[in-house]
């Protein structure tokens, strides 16, 4: 009888300390979409890139979803592998560099008293959506630097969404990446136009 009680307690202890099947998942944009060829030659003209800024609830590593109107879910088991601001900044720098721009992070620019452009991205929404799939809202700004002062020469509001092609978090991450690349293509076009005008 005594042995049975001890066995029962031990089993309860083991059950209490046992792990469930749920595990944490970390995500990052894949590089397969970033291998676009260089389209421009800008004679090593420098473009400064400021760190991407995310405003609001998406400014965290947990993946954020709008599950129904006025309800936001912050994932407990699904995270970005690094903070999305860092990830998006690096993604932008890589993309523009591959497009032929000489991209320098603004924080590492040092003396910026030259006639160059500086890009700033501000994200308001970067989340999954119960109807739209993946949503990306915000603004981006293009500054021209003259004698140490920034002059706003272009700004644009963007609201991009992309429906998921399948169920699951992987499909959401893919949709986010597609949204981001659409945005980068727009920025690339405007930036290329500006730099070409300068070259002419």
């Amino acid at each position: 009888m005594r042995l049975a009680i001890h066995a029962c307690l031990l089993s309860l202890f083991l059950v209490g300390c046992s792990n469930n099947s749920t595990s944490h998942q970390y995500y990052k944009f894949s590089e397969q979409h970033q291998n676009a060829a260089s389209n421009h030659e800008f004679n090593n003209q420098v473009v400064y890139l400021e760190d991407v800024t995310i405003l609001g609830v998406a400014n965290q590593q947990a993946i954020v979803q709008y599950t129904q109107p006025n309800v936001v879910n912050i994932a407990s088991f699904h995270f970005w592998a690094e903070h999305p601001e860092i990830m998006l900044t690096q993604l932008t720098q890589n993309y523009l560099s591959k497009q032929g721009f000489t991209v320098v992070p603004r924080s590492l620019a040092g003396d910026i008293d030259t006639k160059q452009y500086s890009v700033k991205l501000v994200i308001n929404d970067f989340a999954g959506h119960y109807e739209k799939g993946a949503v990306l809202n915000g603004s981006w700004y293009l500054y021209q630097l003259k004698r140490g002062a920034s002059h706003l020469v272009h700004s644009k509001r963007f609201a991009i969404d992309n429906a998921l092609k399948a169920d699951g978090f992987n499909a959401l991450i893919t949709a986010h990446q597609t949204n981001w690349e659409v945005l980068l293509q727009d920025i690339e076009a405007v930036l290329a136009l500006r730099l070409n005008q300068n070259n002419e």
Partner: peptide, 21 residues
């Protein structure tokens, strides 16, 4: 959400899975 999380395992509910529409 779960103060005893450090002792016992997370009992939080699963994250909602994004769905295709």
């Amino acid at each position: 959400e779960q103060p005893n999380m450090l002792i016992f395992d997370k009992s939080t509910t699963e994250d909602p899975v994004p769905r295709k529409r």
